[in-house]
Amino acid sequence: MKRQIPLIIVICMGFLFAAHTFIPHKVSADFYTWWQSWSKAISPFAVFLGVMSLFMVHSTKISRKLPNWQFSVITLAALVFTSFSGFMWGTMEGTPFMWLFKNVQMPMGATMFSLLAFHIASAAYKAFRARSPEATVLLVAAIIVMLGQVPLGTQISEWIPETSKWILNVPNLAAKRAIALGVGLGMTATSLKILLGIERTYLGGGE
């Protein structure tokens, strides 16, 4: 029953929503509006579950003194302090929440993303080698696209941004379309498997 009831809900709702897309009838539209209210009511529970899960995972780590438990203390302290400042003084400009966002969240986020530049430079130097004809094509294409992305490329020659554009619009686009078609077909197949109850891994239980 523990698995059958959720499975029946998923199958029934899945077919109902698939039918709704193709039936522009008032009954179908009313059902969709009714469901919207339910969906809005469900979302706060998801937030509650997320916060509870975060607390449980990190408090367990702290109580058992697992490796790097100190970071869990910081995570929980940040969660409590940020939430408290948001609930207490609001989230508008000039509040402690906004100060935290501008002075902690923003620089930390930017720092994490900017590390990419260092890793790319290091990887380009250490690993980007013309070991084979395929690797050479990739290497030449990368150099042209990189130059085409900056004003210097156009200043060197009009040919560079034009070639860069061609690389992005022709070979890149062909590969992306092929991937998109594959993903689309895969999604359709998986959706059908879920609707028909063949795919059940989302129910958990490790079966």
């Binding site: 430079a121 900056v150 210097l152």
Partner: peptide
């Protein structure tokens, strides 16, 4: 920012070229 990006791209290209010269 594009100034910095231009210099960074040129640096990466130089790194690729130097790395490949060393490799060959």
């Amino acid at each position: 920012g594009m100034n910095a990006q231009t210099v960074a791209h040129v640096m990466i290209i130089v790194f690729i070229i130097i790395g490949n010269i060393g490799y060959f």
